[in-house]
């Protein structure tokens, strides 16, 4: 089953989305700050990374930049999952190589799970 790395500091989001994906059989690994996220991405080589932007220790965009600069992680699809809707941030994330950018508040839990599954299907 596909491996997902979920970089998110909000416990509520980690639990609800993380548990939903686990119950569907995905192997979900959780990172609660940016530095931990980069470390786990390099060591765990997940099939998909879900990345929040406002993170302790390292901002999500810096995490993305670092992932794209490392040959181990440069090809892993990254879904930005945030509540920030600044045009500049969206553009920067896409420019840095994010696969897609979702505003959490605009999606239900099921819709996000569907997007995750679609992305995994596409990349496999």
């Amino acid at each position: 089953m596909s491996k997902i790395l979920f970089i998110e500091d909000e416990v509520a989001i980690q639990k609800t989305l993380g548990e939903s994906l686990r119950s569907k059989g995905y192997d979900v690994q959780a990172a609660t700050d940016g530095e931990m996220g980069v470390r786990l991405a390099k060591s765990g080589k997940p099939d998909l990374i879900l990345l929040d932007l406002i993170l302790p220790k390292k901002h999500g965009l810096d995490v993305l930049k670092e992932l794209r600069e490392d040959e181990v992680t440069e090809h892993i699809p990254v879904m930005i999952l945030t509540n920030l809707e600044n045009v500049g941030e969206v553009e920067k994330a896409i420019e840095l190589g994010a696969t897609t950018y979702l505003i959490k508040a605009n999606y239900s839990l099921n819709e996000v799970i569907e997007k995750v599954e679609q992305l995994l299907k596409k990349s496999s």
């Binding site: 909000e10 989001i13 609800t16 989305l17 509540n83 920030l84 959490k104 508040a105 839990l109």
Partner: peptide, 18 residues
């Protein structure tokens, strides 16, 4: 503002949906 207002609402919505 959009982040501060949205974050608790998203958490509430997703937790209830879950």
């Amino acid at each position: 503002v959009s982040h501060q207002l949205r974050a608790p609402l998203t958490n509430l919505r997703w937790a209830t949906q879950f």
